[in-house]
Amino acid sequence: MPAPARPDDCIFCKIIEGDLPADIVHADEITVAFRDLNPQAPTHVLVVPRSHYANAAELARHEPTSVAALVSAGSAVAAAEGLDDGYRLVFNTGAGAGQTVFHAHLHVLGGRSLQGHMA
């Protein structure tokens, strides 16, 4: 089943297409990773699938291999950023969980102790 059409107002789709600038730190056939504009840790990178699904649950339902690709890209970003002491990978799914952009995405957080802190 093909991915749904990209909404015209999706900021992440615009970044993927190159229509909006972003500090891209990783890209491959399935994912694009860029620095968050409102970082919650010294390293805060968003990893998004090139296909548009509103959240991680929809992505997992329709493209489960893309979820694995997001996690793999997140791991590559963490290694490239030198997060040897550890990092956090976070999916926020739905407004009640803090999701504000409704294009599935994974947060890579690190660069300081995250013990006792929720993203």
Rank of each mutant, 00 (worst) to 15 (best):
H52M: 11
R88A: 11
H105M: 05
T93Q: 05
P2Y: 03
G94R: 08
G86Y: 02
Q40Y: 09
G86A: 02
H62G: 08
F34C: 03
G74T: 09
N55W: 09
V71C: 12
R61D: 13
G110K: 03
S113E: 08
L37F: 08
G18Y: 04
T65V: 14
A80K: 13
Y87G: 03
V45C: 05
D9P: 09
V45E: 01
V77D: 03
L70A: 10
V45I: 13
T65W: 11
A33T: 04
K14N: 09
A76F: 00
T31C: 15
A3G: 15
P7H: 11
A3W: 10
I30T: 14
G86M: 05
M118R: 15
P21N: 05
A3I: 13
M1S: 13
H117Q: 15
P39N: 08
R112V: 04
T43I: 14
L20Y: 13
G74N: 06
V32H: 01
A76L: 04
A69W: 00
R50F: 09
R88E: 14
D23C: 04
A60W: 00
S75L: 14
Y87A: 06
Q40S: 15
H44T: 06
V47S: 05
F102M: 07
I11M: 08
I15M: 06
P39G: 10
I30R: 05
A5K: 11
